[in-house]
Design a binder for these strands. Structure first.
Length: 814
RNA sequence: GCCCGGGUGGCGAAAUCGGCAGACGCAGGGGACUUAAAAUCCCCUUUCCGCAAGGAAGUGCGGGUUCAAGUCCCGCCCCGGGCACCA
């Protein structure tokens, strides 16, 4: 027996080096094994790894290791996002090249990650910010262009006249530029590129059913809401004194007899036509301003009137700040009596309220008594020929009527809009298009890909787009006519990169195609995708769209990229999400230096279940470190025992130890296969360790040897360096990753006695220890023999006996 | 406002199917070892009453179902996240 101190600072580098040399994490090509593709969401290269990352990667890594020990061929790749805006801002601030900045950050993140020995297949590393990758972004762009899925249109952007640059919505503060707090943000029309996500809107919605069970319910419901399908009717109102018509969308055409005005979005073309664009401009800016949370309803009368096609009634046309240009037709009919928003608007501006729907079991509300709109379905009361019909029936008949008369039709609208991919930034994938004065918009020929970013561009943060200022980049010959033309200077949104990176992992070096169908088919769909819930609607819609688009290009045959999704909780520190910008980061480097990476990763899993937010407190780390050292001492002091492992108990202590061992194996295995509550897995392993400490002296050497070996294997997914070190100390051959996960033996795990709580009238009065197969009579007899139970039964009759075998006895007395 | 989560000891949490509330760990207390300290090992630790045996209360609040509720049902309150005038 020898006792050694646990020194992770020595052990971990030793195994890191060995594993690198062995290329331990390279993906197996053994096709006889079932595949398992596990992936954490692409990290952005912020340059600083924090405990939030470590927790995320520890979850995926524990799973990857477990699956590998279970005999799977595991793909667990690692990649890097290009993260455009921060790169560019850093470049402007520090006068550095954004590429250099990004690459330096990636190198730093990589170095820090490697000290944890996460089981990434570094051979399959990709960087989505390198030309080899954006070549294929461009290739996809061209395919979409051919199919009409990529198009260009005029679109309003936030514009700061001071910087002469485009602002993202979050850069608008109180209607002003974030850098020039006195300068109001303007709206500017720019030609922007879009991907037609709406072409797949029904697919995106219907296929959510396919994901049910594999994806968290809340993500599915967030996506449903985001897509926002609603059925209704489009109806034309005629402008008084002209033939022009304005189309409105409504889900409640049955209320149209109560329409008392038409309200246009401030961006509506009629507003400009009426010469009121200037009056509407501040409203548009206010709509885009994220800081103005609850915008008060505002509007103005245009002086014009429209005619209701059902009643022929003349109603005023208004402009309202709460009407959205991007939804429906950008114009509404206001029915104040039956829509709360319309009610607020009309009451504010003195527009009449006309109730036309009455509750099924009540009276038609009186306008002067109403304090809020009656928005429920009811009975059409004052609705011309449809009066008397229930709302649903009236809706159907009135829509049919509009179709018959040609002034409207049934319509489905979606909240989901096309994906604007244009960015007026330097650091991103250049859009492979050329504008020719003669030929129009012409795609760059595929043989000329990739279109590379020009080097040595000075970034100022001023001006429409940095690439526009580089003549060598912009001035090109038109590929069709050879005449002088201009290259598109916008770059692509970085969400494009993350929409298909996981396909590229299957074939990262392919220079003929984004990936080969065969290689992707070998791994897809992703068996387990892991990431933060903050991606529930953007990334996770875009990448689903991309998969469907690739399916229609004939590249793949499946509908969905990932069959299972796990959303892990955030790491909270001092009441806020841990992030570099908030300065509440716990540095893993420091923790690794002090306790080692095994401690850091095991603790990040032990502190809370992975799907729950984790309130970070340093105080528990010590305990995890103590536990690992405790295991280390226990195993190393018996490492030289020379006993052959044995699962045949020779005494009661052996039996108890083997029972605990197999109960723990069952528990940890079940956690991996279902809930991933690694905190309870680790608690179980701690209990096993405590039990072995208690029984240590009494165990026969073979059984002890057996228990120590299984314990070592159980630790592998959580503390791989320690596990490997102990495995070697025990004289076994590694790497542990290639050793089979311990099998669970139900016979050995079985308890031979069980403690049964005894209740009287539902109150705990004692416990009896019984054989597992004891009958109800035996249990009742034993219970009555218990001193305390007998005392409570004194002078009373047992009226009812409830016995749940092996669990509980409840005696009802009166 | 709508849609998701969540609320359990001094703290992080556990209780997987309605069946012993608080596993495991932290912090705290006590003991052993030590000249001493650290480290280690062992014990105690929901609250209140009690010397103890034991008793009472207890999972955000108020009701309900049940032999039995942290868990199921109805009505609220609070915290976190997401979406937000979606016609």
């Amino acid at each position: 027996m020898s006792e050694r101190a646990y020194r992770p600072q020595e052990i971990e580098p030793k195994w890191q080096k060995k594993w690198e040399e062995q290329q331990l994490y390279r993906t197996s090509t053994d096709a006889s094994k079932p595949k398992y593709y596990v992936l954490e969401m692409l990290p952005y290269p912020s340059g600083t790894l924090h405990m939030g990352h470590v927790r995320n990667y520890s979850i995926g890594d524990a799973l990857a290791r477990y699956k590998r020990m279970q005999g799977f061929r595991v793909l667990h790749p690692m990649g890097w996002d290009s993260f455009g805006l921060p790169a560019e801002n850093a470049a402007i601030k520090n006068k550095r090249d954004p590429g250099e900045w990004t690459r330096a950050n990636i190198a730093n993140m990589k170095r820090q990650l490697r000290s944890f020995s996460f089981s990434y297949d570094w051979e399959r590393e990709i960087s989505s910010c390198e030309p080899e990758y954006y070549r294929w972004n461009q290739w996809f762009f061209l395919q979409m262009w051919k199919k009409g899925l990529a198009y260009r249109k005029q679109s309003l952007v936030n514009w700061c006249p001071e910087c002469a640059t485009v602002l993202a919505n979050e850069q608008v503060v109180n209607g002003c530029c974030w850098r020039h707090e006195q300068t109001p943000v303007e709206q500017k029309e720019l030609e922007q590129w879009f991907f037609k996500t709406t072409a797949y809107v029904e697919d995106l919605l219907c296929d959510l059913d396919e994901l049910e069970g594999g994806w968290p319910d809340r993500v599915i419901s967030m996506q449903r809401n985001w897509i926002g399908r609603s059925e209704g009717t489009e109806v034309d109102f005629t402008l008084e004194g002209s033939d022009e018509m304005v189309r409105v969308f409504t889900t409640r055409v049955d209320t149209i007899f109560g329409a008392t005005c038409v309200i246009l979005a401030p961006q509506h073309p009629w507003v400009a036509e009426f010469g009121m664009a200037e009056k509407a401009a501040p409203m548009i800016a206010a709509q885009k301003d994220k800081a103005a949370d609850d915008l008060e309803k505002d509007g103005f009368f245009t002086g014009k009137y429209a005619l209701n096609p059902y009643s022929g009634e003349k109603v005023p046309i208004w402009v309202g700040n709460f009407v959205l240009w991007g939804y429906g037709t950008g114009a509404i009919m206001a029915v104040p009596a039956h829509d709360q928003r319309d009610f607020e608007f009309c009451r504010k501006f003195g527009i009449p309220v006309v109730p036309v729907i009455q509750p099924a079991d009540g009276e038609l509300p009186k306008a002067e008594d109403m304090i809020e709109a009656y928005a429920e379905y009811g009975i059409a009361a004052v609705c011309g020929q449809w009066s008397g019909l229930p709302s649903a029936e009236a809706k159907a008949q009135m829509t049919a009527f509009a179709e018959e008369k040609g002034f409207g039709e049934g319509a489905i609208t979606y909240r989901l809009r096309d994906w604007g991919v244009s960015r007026q930034r330097y650091w991103g994938t250049p859009i492979p298009m050329i504008h020719c004065p003669k030929c129009g918009t012409v795609p760059v020929p595929e043989k000329d890909l990739p279109v590379r970013l020009p080097e040595n561009v000075e970034l100022t943060g001023v001006g429409e787009s940095p690439l526009k200022t580089v003549p060598e980049f912009v001035n090109v010959a038109c590929p069709e006519c050879g005449g002088p033309a201009e290259r598109e200077a916008d770059t692509m949104d970085t969400f494009v990169d993350s929409s298909w990176y996981f396909y590229r992992y299957c074939d990262p070096k392919n220079d003929q195609a984004p990936f080969s169908t065969e290689n992707a088919a070998a791994w897809f769909p992703i068996d387990q995708y892991i990431g933060g819930v903050e991606h529930a609607v953007l990334h996770l819609i875009y990448c689903r769209f991309w998969t469907k688009m690739m399916r229609d290009l004939g590249l793949i045959t499946w509908n969905e990229p990932a069959s299972r999704l796990f959303t892990q909780g955030m790491v909270i520190k001092d009441g806020a999400k841990m992030s570099k910008s908030l300065g509440n980061v716990v540095s893993p480097e420091e923790m690794v230096g002090q306790y080692g990476s095994d401690t850091a990763r095991a603790f990040s899993l032990f502190a809370a279940p992975p799907d729950r937010d984790l309130d970070w407190q340093d105080s528990g780390v010590e305990g995890m470190s103590r536990f690992l050292a405790r295991v280390y001492r226990l195993v190393t002091r018996h490492a030289d025992d020379q006993a052959a492992p044995s699962a045949s108990p020779a005494n009661d202590a052996d039996k108890a130890a083997l029972r605990k061992l197999h109960q723990t194996i069952e528990r940890v295995t079940a956690d991996f296969d279902s809930r991933w509550h690694f905190n309870t897995s680790l608690a179980g392993i701690m209990e096993l360790t405590n039990e072995l400490y208690a029984l240590e002296e009494k165990l026969s050497p073979g059984v002890l040897a057996e228990c120590l070996r299984r314990l070592t294997l159980l630790l592998e997914p959580f503390a791989p360096h320690l596990s490997e070190e102990l495995w070697e100390a025990l004289g076994e051959q590694g790497p542990v990753l290639d050793v089979a996960w311990p099998a669970y033996d139900a016979e050995l795990a079985k308890d031979d006695s069980v403690e049964i709580p005894v209740q009287i009238n539902g109150k705990m009065r004692g416990k009896v220890t019984m054989a597992v197969d004891a009958s109800q009579e035996e249990v009742v007899a034993a219970a009555k023999a218990d001193e305390n139970v007998a005392r409570h039964l004194e002078g009373k009759t047992v009226r009812k006996t409830i016995y749940v075998p092996g669990r509980m006895l409840n005696l009802i007395v009166g």
